[in-house]
Design a protein around this nucleic acid. Structure first.
Length: 278
DNA sequence: CGGCCAACCTGTGCGC
DNA sequence: TGCGCACAGGTTGGCC
């Protein structure tokens, strides 16, 4: 489940395999994912050397030595697997759309059944102005994410706070799961209009958002179903969900005794405690 | 610009 | 076993 913590986990798994490494053979097996792959995708990456990996919101940025930066998004179902040089490299599986063989003999595979992911090209010196990147809000784990900035961005919005937190222009990297978790921790009802979220609620929410994402990264992401880290191991944060996916189960607030409910907002499931969250 | 919905895809799990 | 439907981690384009 690729929200910020999962993308960060994937990026950290890829970095030691790709950074400083020449790509021996890059192959794409589909013409497009969510959008067209670059026409020169294979030729431009094959023979190129990766300088550095980084993450912006849910995008992984692969900076290469010739100035190219590849922008990768995992969409809903995108996964990355790594097969070491001294291990068996499996035959291409269904929905394996891109494979990268490195000069060291490591194999990196991008698999995405729903093809909501994307890979496009930009350049290192223009990446900040790229259409996919330029309007994204502050990184929640960085210094630019503070109460004043956050409050300024939400206090005029009439939409439910749940919907506003999913908006990547407001704050980067949150998805359906971590929004539910953050609102549960903050005691804020997901349907409350963002312009009715008081400043003192924002003061709670900012560190809570930081904490929930930081904890999830430390746990190696969450992982619903069989979503795996690049190592193939599952993330463990899912075992710590307090709201997400817990419809009908007891609220875990001490002494609450209420039951987690599920509603639909903007066509997405929202899980919350009708008692704790106001 | 803000807000809302449909659309993009495939797979899975459930009720019948 | 098969069928139809609801639902799944995200984003965006079009419409009011």
């Amino acid at each position: 489940m690729p929200e910020l913590p999962e993308v960060e986990t994937v990026m950290r798994g890829l970095a030691p395999v790709l950074e400083g490494v020449r790509l021996e053979k890059v192959q794409a097996f589909v013409p497009k994912l969510r959008v067209d792959l670059p026409i020169d995708f294979e030729e431009r990456l094959t023979g190129n050397r990766v300088v550095q990996l980084s993450r912006r919101s849910k995008y992984i940025l692969v900076e290469c030595e010739d100035g190219l930066t590849a922008i990768l998004h995992l969409g809903m179902s995108g996964r990355v697997s790594i097969y070491g040089a001294n291990t068996h490299h499996p035959a291409r599986a269904k929905h394996d759309h891109v494979t990268i063989l490195t000069e060291r003999g490591d194999l990196v595979v991008f698999n995405d059944p729903r093809r909501f992911g994307l890979i496009v090209f930009s350049t290192a010196d223009t990446i900040q102005t790229h259409a996919l990147i330029k309007d994204i809000g502050p990184e929640p784990l960085g210094n630019a994410f503070d109460v004043d900035t956050f409050w300024a961005r939400i206090k005029t919005r009439k939409s439910p706070i749940k919907t506003v937190l999913l908006n990547q222009k407001v704050v980067a990297g949150l998805g359906n799961i971590y929004v539910c978790e953050a609102l549960w921790r903050a005691g804020i009802h997901p349907t409350r209009r963002a312009d009715r979220v008081r400043r003192k609620d924002a003061e709670k929410l900012v560190p809570i958002i930081r904490d929930v994402l930081t904890e999830a990264i430390a746990a190696g992401g969450s992982t619903l179903k069989d979503y795996a880290q690049v190592s193939g191991e599952l993330g463990y944060f899912q075992h710590r969900f307090k709201a997400y996916g817990r419809e009908g189960e007891p609220c875990l607030t001490q002494g609450c005794g209420s039951t987690i409910e599920r509603i639909v907002q903007s066509n997405r499931s929202t899980f919350f405690c009708p008692t704790c969250q106001t």
